[in-house]
């Protein structure tokens, strides 16, 4: 995903001279392509995420669309107030990019696990969360974010994720994207890198992905949920404050509310050191 991200960003930046990338001293062997092509729009802010984010907001207020880039919690929780006040409140075009969504950095431990990031980001009223499920959704999300500049969060896995789409899908906030056809009205809906787990657990059921969502996109959900008898959500994030919770809140008080069954990571994974696939299994996302 991160390779699809940097390739796509570099391509987009050729056409749009206001795209800038600021990294928090991370991105070795990823960001060089962008840095080499656009040295005047690439900044390494150093190990200083609060300044990185405030700086990004300042540049965004002068016409740049700034992408801040770091691992997991560093560009999110470390600078949560800068995202809340400087970026989201001012509705500035800053896209916070985190690599290592979920437990992608398994053995690096809890400091590097992003399992509460949706909870943080979806509490921001103007924030669009982009959580692509494969490299093609990554490209689709990035194009949408650049065409619709505003406060946004792009959550990537690492590298080498499989492709689940044949071509770049159409994406829009709140709009479910079909991934696998299947029989019946019992469906799976994933966000982010949990798409692989959804496909593995499908057993012939239809699989959908929701790579773009936001507070504002809740309004579209009751209608989409109501078309199905059961919607099982999947995410590599804790249940509390996550994607399943978001969807449940979105349909609360409607007849569709009883249809939703969230599958998320158990908080057990927060105390464990293991590879991503092991943590996803122990956490209950995969079988």
């Amino acid at each position: 995903m991160r390779n699809a991200f940097i390739e796509e960003l570099t391509t987009l930046a050729e056409a749009r001279d206001n795209i800038a990338l600021i990294v928090g001293d991370l991105g070795y062997s990823v960001i060089e392509e962008f840095a080499d092509c656009f040295p005047d729009r690439f900044i390494n802010a150093g190990v200083a995420e609060q300044n990185m984010t405030g700086l990004a907001a300042g540049m965004a207020s002068e016409g740049y669309h700034v992408f801040t880039y770091s691992i997991a919690n560093f560009p999110t929780f470390r600078c949560a107030e800068q995202i809340r006040n400087d970026v989201d409140h001012h509705r500035l075009p800053v896209t916070v990019v985190a690599v290592g969504g979920g437990v992608a950095y398994g053995a690096l431990g809890y400091s590097h696990h992003a399992v509460q990031d949706y909870a943080l980001m979806r509490a921001m009223p103007n924030m669009v969360i982009a959580a692509p499920g494969d490299p093609l959704e990554t490209r689709a999300c990035l194009r949408w974010l650049v065409d619709n500049p505003g406060p946004s969060y792009l959550r990537l896995g690492k590298a080498g994720e499989p492709r689940f789409h044949d071509s770049i899908p159409d994406v829009a906030p709140g709009q479910w994207v079909p991934v696998r056809e299947g029989g019946g009205d019992d469906i799976l809906l994933s966000t982010g890198a949990a798409l692989g787990a959804a496909i593995a657990r499908a057993e012939g059921r239809p699989v959908w992905s929701l790579p773009l969502w936001s507070m504002a996109a809740k309004i579209q959900q009751p209608g989409q949920v109501a078309r199905h008898a059961r919607v099982t959500t999947l995410e590599d994030h804790l249940a509390d404050g996550g994607f399943g919770s978001w969807l449940t809140e979105a349909v609360a008080g409607t007849p569709a509310a009883a249809c939703i069954q969230p599958i998320a990571l158990s908080s057990e994974v927060c105390d464990m050191v293991a590879g991503q696939s092991t943590l996803n299994r122990i956490g209950g996302l995969t079988l």
Binding site: D40, R41, I43, Q50, N51, T53, G54, L55, A56, A57, G58, M59, A60, S61, E62, G63, Y64, E81, Q82, N85, D86, H89, H90
Partner: peptide
């Protein structure tokens, strides 16, 4: 007024971004 504040330690990073934009 350019920027809303109230939480401290936000003005200088934001202003630094503006100054950087002007330089670039």
């Amino acid at each position: 007024a350019e920027f809303s504040t109230g939480a401290l330690g936000h003005g200088l990073p934001f202003g630094t971004g503006k100054a950087m934009a002007a330089k670039l």
